[in-house]
Design a protein around this nucleic acid. Structure first.
Lengths: 101, 101
DNA sequence: TTGCTATTTTGCCAAATTGCCAAATAGATG
DNA sequence: CATCTATTTGGCAATTTGGCAAAATAGCAA
C-alpha cells in the first residue's frame, strides 16, 4: 500500500505555468467560447456568430485558447471545428458562482 | 419534488463577471498568495517575504484579490491578516495540472 | 500631542492586451 | 493553373496591467 502522496511545494515557475492557462480563460469572450464547446465541437464561423466580434478577433481568441492547451481544432473541408480538451476547466464555474462582491 | 434546475443561458454580463474573478487569479504572484492562504490566514508582512516583491506591489495584488471577492482581511493591532474566502478556487489547480502544451 | 510600525494609495512608466482592418494563407473545386 | 471560402496573421491605436518609490493613512503607545 502506498503512502499518501505529499505534493512538492510549488515554485514560481509552477505558478507562472498555471497563470498562463488561467489568463487564457480570463476574458468574457473566451469564457463564452469555452462554454459553447461544452457539449460539442463548433465551427469557427458559428463561434463568430455567437460572439458577434470580427472573425479575426474570434480567431485570435481561439489561438490564445489553443496555445494554452485548452482547445484543439479539427479540419473538415473548409471548416475548422474546435473542441474543448479538458472539460473540467468549466467545473470551475460552480465555485466562481458562489463568490459575491 | 422539484424538477431538476435548468440553468439559464449565460449572458455576456455573466461572463464578464466570471472573467473579473478569473483575471484576479491569473497572475503567478496572486496564485502564490492564494495558495499560501490555503490552510491559515497570513499577515501581509509574511506574504511580502514569501513573494519577495516590494510591499506596495504585494499590497496591490491583495487589493485585486480582495476586490474580486477572493480574500478578506482581519486587523489585529498593526497587522492585517488575510484569509481565503472560497478555498474551492484552489481545486481548480487539479484540472489545470492535467493540461499539457 | 508625537512618534513608531504596518499597510495602502498615488504617480509614473514600460510592457502586455484588445479589437479592428487589411493582407496573407490553407484547402477545396473547377 | 485560377478562384472561391474559411481562417489566420500582421499592423496599429487605445486601453490595461505590473512594479517600484514616495507619500498618505491607520492603529498603537508614550
Amino acid at each position: 500500500m502506498k503512502t499518501k502522496a505529499r505534493p512538492e511545494p510549488k515554485t514560481k515557475h509552477d505558478y507562472a505555468a498555471q497563470a498562463e492557462i488561467i489568463k487564457a480563460m480570463a476574458h468574457p469572450t473566451r469564457l463564452l467560447i469555452l462554454n459553447s464547446l461544452k457539449k460539442k465541437e463548433v465551427c469557427v464561423c458559428e463561434l463568430r456568430d455567437l460572439v458577434g466580434d470580427d472573425i479575426s478577433t474570434v480567431s485570435k481568441h481561439l489561438s490564445i485558447l489553443k496555445n494554452a492547451g485548452l482547445v484543439a481544432a479539427r479540419r473538415e473541408g473548409n471548416w475548422l471545428h474546435y473542441r474543448l480538451i479538458c472539460p473540467c476547466v468549466l467545473d470551475f464555474t460552480g465555485c466562481i458562482a458562489g463568490i459575491k462582491r
